[in-house]
């Protein structure tokens, strides 16, 4: 076959370029708009929550100190103290970390360092699927399985308790911790492992003395992200917490963390009561903000 000689001609075509430039500037504006939308939402939400939440302290003569450290929450008697809820939130989060972090880390180490490919192909998707389960289903699971279990085996009058919250939150933070930590461990250069093994270290010794320390900042990020998930969780917690307004002194106490307080009462609250729920939101938001700050610090250090 002979191909016809290609006529030499400029491929560019003068008149369509104007449209290209217009499209270009239009699309860059569209991108900018989309990007600004999330900033705008953030400002709106935060601004609204802060505006409403700070009102009673600025204009209503309520003491912020009494709000944070008061132990009574009785809206009908004009008593708004959230100390028990702050304590419940902190205990629940720390408890979930104590259980979730070791399990999550060992899972991540197992998946990235030890598991044969076939095993990994089963466990990895399972962990990722765990992340996709709607949180209300975790609550239902907690209510149907964990709560009765605690009731029967620990002899609690009411299985809904701090311990139930901790267990549910620990399971919920697992996928976050596992996925982020696994990625961090996988990113540790193979040459570190070889160097350690060539020095006569065992495989387990290599993992704990070289690989995990080298992935330290990624693992810290995993923990902080898991923590964020736990502290902000609402739906699952409502179902298993019991929601009593006491400062918890034992794992078996029924508790009401910050998130559930807002969710339970916002529906019918009005006036100062409603504003105090917004103020509860401010406290919760401050926790999250501190966490994000810590996370940013960690990843900045990891980048060095």
């Amino acid at each position: 076959m002979t191909s016809a000689p290609i006529e030499k001609q400029n491929i560019g075509n003068g008149k369509s370029n104007k449209r290209k430039y217009m499209l270009e500037s239009l699309s860059s504006k569209l991108f900018l708009f989309c990007a600004l939308l999330s900033v705008l939402s953030l400002l709106l939400i935060v601004g609204f929550v802060f505006y409403r939440g700070s009102h009673p302290f600025i204009a209503g003569g309520y003491s912020f100190f009494d709000f944070i450290f008061g132990v009574d929450w009785v809206p009908s008697e004009d008593k708004f103290g959230i100390f028990p809820m702050i304590v419940a939130s902190i205990y629940a989060t720390i408890g979930a970390l104590i259980i979730g972090v070791p399990i999550g880390l060992f899972t991540a180490i197992f998946l990235s360092e030890i598991a044969p490919k076939r095993v990994r192909k089963i466990i990895s998707p399972a962990v990722q699927l765990l992340a996709g389960i709607p949180s209300v289903l975790y609550g239902v699971f907690g209510l149907a399985i964990i709560v009765p279990f605690l009731q029967n085996y620990l002899g609690l009058v009411k299985g809904q308790s701090l311990l139930a919250v901790i267990l549910v939150l620990a399971i919920m933070m697992l996928p976050t911790i596992v996925t982020v930590a696994e990625t961090a461990i996988r990113a540790v250069p193979k040459t570190y492992r070889e160097g350690s093994l060539a020095l006569g270290a065992s495989e387990i010794g290599t993992i704990f003395k070289v690989v995990v320390p080298a992935a330290k900042s990624g693992i810290m990020a995993a923990i902080v992200l898991g923590l964020g998930r736990a502290i902000g969780e609402t739906m699952a917690v409502i179902l298993v917490a019991g929601n009593s307004l006491i400062t918890p002194t034992s794992l078996t106490d029924s508790v009401r963390p910050l998130t559930t307080n807002i969710a339970l009462e916002m529906g019918y609250a009005a006036g100062v009561h409603q504003e105090m729920l917004f103020a509860t939101g401010i406290v919760l938001f401050s926790f999250i903000l501190i966490l994000n700050f810590v996370l940013a610090k960690i990843s900045a250090r990891g980048a060095n």
């Binding site: 250069p189 040459t191 070889e194 160097g195 350690s196 070289v210 320390p213 080298a214």
Partner: peptide
């Protein structure tokens, strides 16, 4: 063993 690229921990 000494490797191609220095691999200090």
């Amino acid at each position: 063993m000494v490797f191609q690229k220095p691999n200090l921990f």
